[in-house]
């Protein structure tokens, strides 16, 4: 059974970069390099493995400013067939309810083009907002089941998907009706590293940029106006980690340097 899979990818500020504030207290994203959310790459890997097993097509879907297209190229190089980038100034300031609404409209648009979408997959959360809301909320807007913390997709057949999902203290095996949204918790799907050939091939793949009017969303339900939540303020956490990282080819010197530093900082390594 060939599968049509939509994978949701969020372009995020490179997690390795230092977060900068504007004078008004909002985060300055303009200077920062955007990359694909690392947790979404596990979902991309899961989608690609499902395509290899069952056949079908994997379409990426993102909502971001147009300059985010570069961040999507690395995911196309991994093997995603094409991308739809939802980009419109009216989407700025969307919280998770508004974002999930817009993304669900994006899924419906892809469906009109591709035929029935069987699975929507995404990472468990984003590395910048860390909410994990998008999977369940997209599921709700589409009126289909969703499963968060999916460890492995075990089987797809006869209109159902069987997944192993993590719970406190173990796991659950669930049989879920298709179409469904799966939030992939990572670790089981190590993202593949594209080869140079993959990178070159990805340049020919298409990124279709669409706006609010193209996908038929109600403009009053997106952007700041469509977002119930407001960020009042943001501040840097005061308990900064010391980040004293030691390297040395000589292990004796390495461990000695580390213990010396602990002594200097007055830290006792025992109860």
């Amino acid at each position: 059974m060939p599968l049509n899979i939509v994978v949701l990818v969020k372009p995020v500020v490179d997690p390795k970069a230092v977060v900068r504030f504007r004078p008004d207290g909002t985060i300055d994203r303009s200077a920062a390099k955007l990359v694909a959310n690392p947790y979404d790459k596990y979902a991309v890997e899961a989608a690609l493995q499902l395509r290899e097993r069952y056949g079908g097509r994997v379409v990426g879907l993102s909502m971001a400013p147009p300059q985010a297209a570069d961040a999507l190229r690395e995911v196309l190089a991994m093997g995603v067939d094409e991308f739809v980038l939802l980009s419109d100034p009216r989407l700025a300031g969307s919280d998770t309810l508004a974002t999930s609404y817009a993304l669900s409209a994006g899924v419906r648009m892809i469906e009109r083009k591709l035929g029935k979408v069987d699975l929507v997959v995404c990472g468990i959360e984003s590395s910048d907002s860390n909410t994990g809301h998008i999977g369940p909320e997209v599921g709700e807007w589409l009126g289909i089941p969703s499963v968060s913390y999916v460890d492995t997709v075990l089987d797809v057949s006869e209109g159902y998907v069987v997944v192993k999902r993590l719970i406190e203290g173990g796991y659950m095996k669930l049989r879920v009706r298709l179409p469904a949204v799966l939030s992939i918790a990572g670790t089981s799907y190590q993202p593949r590293i594209p080869t140079l050939r993959d990178v070159l091939a990805s340049r020919r793949k298409q990124i279709t940029v669409v706006g609010v009017d193209d996908i038929g969303v109600d403009p009053s339900l997106v952007g700041l106006a469509g977002s119930p939540t407001r960020v009042v303020r943001m501040w840097r956490i005061e308990i900064k980690r010391k980040s004293k990282i030691f390297t040395d080819t000589d292990v004796d010197a390495l461990v000695e340097k580390f213990l010396e530093e602990l002594r200097k900082d007055g830290i006792t390594l025992s109860r």
């Binding site: 500020v13 977060v19 985060i27 943001m234």
Partner: peptide, 9 residues
């Protein structure tokens, strides 16, 4: 938020 570096209200 931002992986724990920033707090938001």
């Amino acid at each position: 938020t931002f992986g724990g570096e920033i707090m938001a209200a």
